[in-house]
C-alpha cells in the first residue's frame, strides 16, 4: 500500500507535503473524525460521502467522551491524494465536527477490527479450522458438534487472511466491526 510509505509530517497542512498530489493512484486512508455527539451527526458525515461520491470501505462510531459529548468516527476511505485532501477539508468544515485526523498520513497507527466468524464442518475440516484458529490467536466463543464461532481481533488484513482460510473449511457467516484506529506514540 503506497500510503504506508508516507513520512510523518507529510500531511496536507504541512509546508513540506511530500505526497505527489497530482497522482491519480488511489490510496486507502484511515480518518478519525471527532464529532459532537448529537442526533444526526453520523447521517451528516455519511451523507457527505454519498452526496459527493466518496468511498467508505469501513466505518465505526461510538461515543468516546461522555461528559464532553464527543464521538469518534473512524472511516476507511479510498481515493487519489487530492480526493483524500478534499474529504478531509469537507469533513473539517462541518459544524459538528471538532477535528479530523488522517491517521494514514500523520504517521504510524494501530488499526484493529473485531470479527466473529462462523464455520460449520465435521472431521478433518473441523480440526483444521481449530488448528488455524490457534495459529491466528482467535478464540472459540461458541461451539456445537458441527460448528464453531471464532472471535478474532487484528488488523483488517489478518481477518481477511483468516476468512480466506476458513472458506474451504466451511465458512458460514462473518460479522466485522470495522476498523478502530489510533496513532502510535504519545
Amino acid at each position: 500500500m503506497s500510503a504506508l510509505n508516507i513520512k510523518k509530517g507529510s500531511t496536507s497542512h504541512s509546508a513540506y507535503d511530500l505526497r505527489d498530489s497530482h497522482s491519480q493512484a488511489e490510496e486507502s486512508h484511515t480518518l478519525a473524525v471527532i464529532v459532537e455527539n448529537e442526533p444526526g451527526v453520523l447521517a451528516r458525515v455519511i451523507g457527505l460521502f454519498s452526496g459527493r461520491g466518496y468511498n467508505i470501505d469501513s466505518l465505526t462510531v461510538a461515543e468516546v467522551d461522555h461528559t464532553g459529548h464527543r464521538s469518534r468516527i473512524t472511516v476507511v476511505t479510498r481515493g487519489t491524494p487530492s480526493v483524500i485532501d478534499q474529504i478531509e477539508a469537507q469533513l473539517s468544515r462541518m459544524v459538528p465536527v471538532h477535528a479530523v485526523h488522517d491517521l494514514t498520513a500523520e504517521g504510524p497507527s494501530v488499526q484493529r477490527e473485531l470479527a466473529l466468524i462462523k464455520v460449520a464442518g465435521k472431521g478433518d475440516a473441523r480440526i483444521e479450522a481449530l488448528r488455524l484458529c490457534e495459529i491466528f490467536r482467535a478464540k472459540v466463543v461458541d461451539s456445537t458438534l458441527e460448528s464453531f464461532v471464532f472471535e478474532m481481533t487484528g488488523p483488517p488484513e489478518k481477518i481477511d487472511a483468516f476468512a480466506d482460510l476458513m472458506r474451504p473449511l466451511g465458512l458460514k457467516e462473518i460479522a466485522r466491526t470495522g476498523v478502530a484506529a489510533l496513532s502510535r506514540g504519545a
Partner: peptide
C-alpha cells in the same frame, strides 16, 4: 474562508 474550496477543482 472555506478550506474545502481550496484545490477542490483547480490546484
Amino acid at each position: 474562508i472555506d478550506p474545502s474550496s481550496i484545490n477542490k477543482v483547480i490546484r
